[in-house]
């Protein structure tokens, strides 16, 4: 039985896209638990399936994508609801109100001819029905202050009058308006200058403290995961390779891919030797047999070429999908 603290439980999820050359296996047998009040980092390179996983939870997949199997159990309302089985009409009750998604590139999320003020009002109306506009704006002012913006100036502005960093922070405030229990942040700081990036990460930390909102932070940047997350899941070729506490992942990585990734990032201080992982990420239409990482893995054994290792709990709270750690 899932523990009290579980908010989302993804089980054996498989998602594919149809492309001209064949089926793209974007999410492969993913199982992942997310607990109330935590920030979970979903880290992977392009094509690892991290964004598809987020879109699947929100049921915002494009029409050429299909959930093949699996469940996405949401516990936010007390009882378990399988989001994967909900119709478009039913899922709307959950979007924004229960689970919000802040996309990468906030620049495009706003309607260019609407003032920011009206974005707040319209969002409230769309999800709550009739609302008191003054109430909504009062709330909006509080949230804008929280993300370190001047509320009145921002509310009066059109989207193009705000800088990228300001838009991104406004979008965060907007996502918080309906007090969702879970926020999915997809590369929330990409395309921003480093100062805005740091400010947004600090703001997210405040939000988490203030509202105990659960967050899934999707990023390709290990440094951003290091800055904000409590736990990290590492994805590669559609699969989760390793899950653990943030310090475990960074200071004691187990999966050869996690180790390689950490070794590949240059640092500002110290004498760390940097090295890239040999080879290239696999073709998701034509995956190698066995473990998808084996062609690039320095520890690859005979078994790795034949059988795909399952994600196994090797220590409490520590999951790894690698034959080095699985004896069965």
């Amino acid at each position: 039985m899932p523990g009290e603290n579980l908010i989302l439980s993804i089980r054996n999820l498989n998602v594919v896209y149809w492309a001209r050359r064949g089926w793209v296996k974007a999410v492969r047998n993913v199982s992942l638990d997310i607990y109330r009040g935590e920030v979970l980092g979903l880290v992977g390179e392009s094509g690892s399936g991290k964004t598809t996983l987020a879109l699947t939870v929100m049921k915002l997949l494009p029409t050429n994508a299909k959930i093949l199997s699996g469940s996405i159990l949401y516990y936010g309302l007390g009882k378990a609801v399988d989001l994967a089985k909900l119709s478009e009409k039913e899922i709307r009750k959950y979007r924004w109100k229960e689970i919000a998604l802040a996309f990468q590139g906030a620049m495009n999320a706003f309607n260019p001819v609407m003032r920011i003020k009206d974005h707040f009002i319209e969002t409230a109306k769309a999800h709550l029905g009739h609302v008191d506009e003054e109430e909504v704006l009062k709330e909006a002012r509080e949230l804008l202050k929280l993300v370190l913006l001047e509320p009145d100036r921002v509310l009066r502005s059109f989207p193009h009058q705000l800088s990228g960093g300001m838009k991104q922070r406004t979008l965060l405030a907007l996502a918080l308006l309906l007090r969702p229990k879970l926020i999915i942040l997809d590369e929330p700081t990409s395309a921003l200058d480093v100062v805005s990036q740091k400010v947004i990460l600090e703001t997210l930390r405040n939000i988490k403290r203030e509202f105990s909102t659960t967050m899934i932070l999707i990023t390709h940047d290990l440094s951003i995961a290091a800055e904000l997350t409590d736990r990290v899941a590492i994805m590669y070729a559609g699969k989760i390779m390793e899950v653990g506490g943030v310090e475990d992942i960074f200071y004691d990585p187990m999966h050869p891919y996690t180790r390689g990734l950490l070794k590949a990032v240059p640092v500002l201080k110290g004498t760390k030797e940097v090295e890239s992982i040999p080879g290239s990420p696999p073709d998701l239409i034509d995956l190698p047999p066995g473990c998808a990482f084996h062609p690039r893995c320095p520890y690859a054994m005979e078994r790795c070429r034949r059988e795909d290792p399952p994600l196994v709990e090797v220590k409490p709270g520590r999951f790894v999908a690698c034959w080095l750690y699985t004896k069965r």
């Binding site: 805005s196 740091k198 400010v199 600090e202 440094s223 951003i224 290091a226 943030v246 500002l268």
Partner: peptide, 28 residues
């Protein structure tokens, strides 16, 4: 100095101990 203070690093303890100086304005 600001650039260096704001740059996140792939080390949870190091990166969380870095604090931004008090800026007159965040935006460029």
């Amino acid at each position: 100095q600001l650039l260096l203070a704001a740059l996140p690093e792939p080390d949870p303890k190091v990166t969380r101990s870095k604090k931004l100086p008090k800026l007159r304005s965040i935006d460029i």
